[in-house]
Write a protein that binds this DNA or RNA. Structure first.
Lengths: 340, 340
DNA sequence: TTTAGCACTCGGAAGAGGTGAGTGCTAACA
DNA sequence: TGTTAGCACTCACCTCTTCCGAGTGCTAAA
């Protein structure tokens, strides 16, 4: 167990290193109000903390730097989420005070706020669209060969897909067909659509007109939804301002990963409640070994639909960031609740 | 006027510098097959070329490096667009050989091809949506207060906007209303919609039901289209591989500009036919002073709708890039032509 | 247990010297 | 008159050394 002096010293070191990115020395710590001891005593304590794995040295005669274990201990035991500053409050209230009607808008602005206020990169994982329920289907012919199917879901999300149609289809037939489809498919989850089409609707359509065999085939392909959850990224260039990422190669691997989307999306997809943190090697990706990721989920009603995350160096302002993310996920959840 | 030997030397220098990013010396040039003279002669010519402003030295005893004027002369007079390589051909044909139905898909893949094959950053400016003509309008109520308006245009583009509705509206009334709107607004350009609504439709709606005063107001706001043309960017991280952009600050200003979108969009918006090039300071933005931008337009029918561009260092493989962009803009134009 | 003192370590800045790729200039040559 | 060989010169870059200072660990005294 750590003594209270060790706790204090560890906290001072991490707090200071987060601010300056410079190794912290014993003399400097001794001058802090919160610590009374002399540099020599502090050196002894630091040596102990290093032995326990909470601190590291960059070279044999340098000051101390937090290890990943140190950060982990810090966020688990020493973290006191800070109050939001006036500036932060006004920015959040200014945005969520406005009436927003579109999901994308809320998410995009949230990502913007998060990256603006932190100088880190914000990543928001959107909802899995395929869980949405169909509210209305519309098919609009574009020319002789193609038509566009538009699906509006219960959450106000709009999907569209262009597909080929058999030449023979008549406008009036099409209308009939769309009516049947709407009648039978309303309320069905998008991912279920192709199946439902098979079971119920096919026979029904067949009764009402010819040539539906072909049409059916094409329509079905149009209704298959294989789009992954969308990723909203804010402040991509913020990473370039962090001193630990002055190295172009490091930055490139991180940015490639963000651009790739797939791995990041997988990483963020959790169902856990509250704030989650991954510090350095706690995530499996080489590119993110010097990064920390803080995530929180947001909800639509009681259902968790997406994740809001912040990507920064392991030397992250955890206390500020945690407060911010908590506040934002609350605001998002609240906004969505008002809609439904 | 330049002698043919000077032309040859200039070409060798630029070709080589584009490949290696290293200053080119006289001894090296003299060993090239295409040049017969001795290093001393070449030095004399190089001194002349420098005096004329086509070459520069990085320091007093370094080899020569092309100046922006040099590049400009090169692309104007020495450029022989290269044949596409087998690799390039298969990648393009592989993509455009598939049947693609959606505009976004074509543009996104084109951007992908361009950045993959070049290691530069590709930027494609989408069409101005507001010029599209309305094909079908649909309004779907989401809850008591909001509805989503979906607009399908003649190009298969789908726009949607959530808007507030007055509480009193009945489903059957809504259907009537949508029918009237579709009847009156089909074929109208999106940007014209709000006006048309004023002139013709308002009175018509009024005759058919009460409460349209309010509904009208909200609907109108939903039909205002202020979205700028969309930007499709591919290979954002490619810039980080160019040796001239090892400097994090340079990269940051370039990436911020791309992320910003507004200035880039303005820069790309041209009506000129054929390939356009901006070399270094020929563009007005500080961040892009060491970049070149090659653009070509693509067409929908005879109408120019968007621009396809490649952003790289001034030391760009102009001959390859020009051939590629030409080929791609042709393929895009052709694909779109088949649709309409 | 704490602290003062001291020798020690190491990164980083500054300077010196050497190397090599490249130049410009001059004078001889075809 | 244009071309070329020869040569002195320049400058980036590398390496080696030196010096400095911030910081350490250890020891012995308080």
């Amino acid at each position: 167990m750590l003594t209270s002096r060790q706790l204090q010293i560890l906290k001072v070191i991490i707090d200071d290193f987060i601010l300056t990115a410079q190794p912290v020395g014993s003399r400097y710590i001794s001058k802090k109000e919160s610590v009374e001891s002399s540099p020599a005593t502090i050196r002894n304590e630091m040596a102990d903390l290093e032995e326990m794995g909470f601190l590291e040295k960059t070279h044999s005669s340098s000051g101390r730097v937090p290890s990943e274990k140190g950060y982990r201990f810090y966020v688990d035991h020493l973290l006191s989420p800070s109050q939001l500053s006036k500036n932060e409050k006004t920015e959040i209230e200014g945005t969520f005070g406005q009436r927003m009607l579109e999901f994308e808008q809320v998410v995009e602005r949230s990502a913007g706020i998060l990256s603006n206020l932190t100088n880190y990169t914000s990543i928001i994982l959107g909802p899995e669209v395929f869980e949405n329920k169909l509210k209305q289907l519309q098919i609009t012919p574009l020319n002789k060969e193609t038509a566009v199917a538009v699906l509006v879901t219960n959450t106000g999300h709009v999907e569209h897909r262009v597909f080929t149609i058999p030449v023979e289809i008549e406008p009036s037939d099409l209308e009939k067909m769309v009516n049947i489809l709407n009648d039978r498919l309303k309320g069905v989850a998008l991912i279920e659509l192709p199946n439902r089409l098979n079971e119920e609707v096919f026979s029904l359509l067949r009764e009402h007109a010819e040539h539906y065999n072909d049409a059916f085939h094409y329509l079905r392909s149009a209704l298959v939804d294989d789009k992954p959850a969308k990723l909203y990224v804010g402040g991509k260039t913020n990473m370039l301002m962090q001193p630990e990422f002055r190295d172009v190669d490091k930055i490139r691997s991180i940015m490639s990963m963000i651009e790739e989307e797939r791995d990041i999306a997988k990483l963020l997809k959790t169902n856990d409640q509250g704030i989650q943190m991954m510090i350095g090697h706690e995530n499996p990706f080489d590119a993110l070994q010097h990064c920390s990721i803080i995530t929180a989920n947001y909800y639509l009603g009681n259902q968790q639909v997406g994740t809001i995350a912040l990507l920064g160096p392991t030397r992250m302002e955890y206390n500020r960031v945690v407060a911010l993310i908590e506040e934002l996920s609350k605001n998002m959840t609240k906004t969505f609740k008002e809609w439904y």
